[in-house]
Amino acid sequence: MDNLNLGKHISGQFNEELEAIRNNVLTMGGIVEKQLSDALDAVERFDSDMAQKVLQSDYRINAMEVQIDEECTRIIAKRQPAASDLRLVMAIIKTIADLERIGDEAERIAKVALDSFTNAQQELLVNLDNLGRHVLQMLRDVLNAFARMDIDAAIAVHKEDRRVDREYEAVTRQLMTYMMEDPRSIPSIMDVLWSARSLERIGDRCQNISEYIIYFVKGKDIRHTSYENLEQEIDHKP
Score class of each variant (00 low, 15 high):
L6M: 09
L6G: 00
L6T: 13
G12P: 11
Q13G: 01
N15V: 12
N15D: 11
N15M: 14
E17S: 11
L18I: 11
A20G: 09
N24P: 03
L26T: 04
L26K: 08
T27Y: 13
I31A: 12
I31P: 08
I31D: 13
E33A: 02
L36I: 02
S37W: 01
L40E: 10
D41R: 13
E44W: 13
S48K: 14
K53S: 06
S57F: 02
D58F: 05
I61R: 03
N62R: 06
M64E: 08
V66T: 08
D69I: 01
C72K: 02
T73Y: 13
I76K: 00
A77R: 04
P81W: 02
A82Y: 05
S84W: 13
D85T: 11
M90D: 01
D98Y: 07
A106E: 01
E107D: 14
A110S: 15
V112W: 00
T118Q: 08
N119E: 15
Q122E: 11
Q122C: 13
E123N: 05
L124R: 07
N127T: 12
L128H: 10
L136G: 03
Q137F: 05
Q137A: 08
A145C: 04
A147Q: 15
A147W: 15
I155R: 06
A156L: 08
V157T: 04
K159M: 13
E160T: 09
R162C: 15
V164H: 06
R166Y: 09
R166G: 15
E167S: 13
E167R: 01
A170T: 10
R173V: 12
M176G: 06
M180P: 02
M180E: 12
I186D: 07
S188T: 13
M190V: 15
V192N: 00
L193K: 07
S195P: 03
I202G: 02
D204V: 05
D204L: 05
R205E: 08
Q207P: 11
I209P: 12
S210T: 03
I213W: 01
Y215A: 06
K218F: 07
K218M: 09
D221L: 09
D221Q: 14
I222T: 09
H224G: 03
T225N: 14
T225H: 11
T225V: 11
S226N: 14
E228H: 12
D235V: 10
K237Q: 14
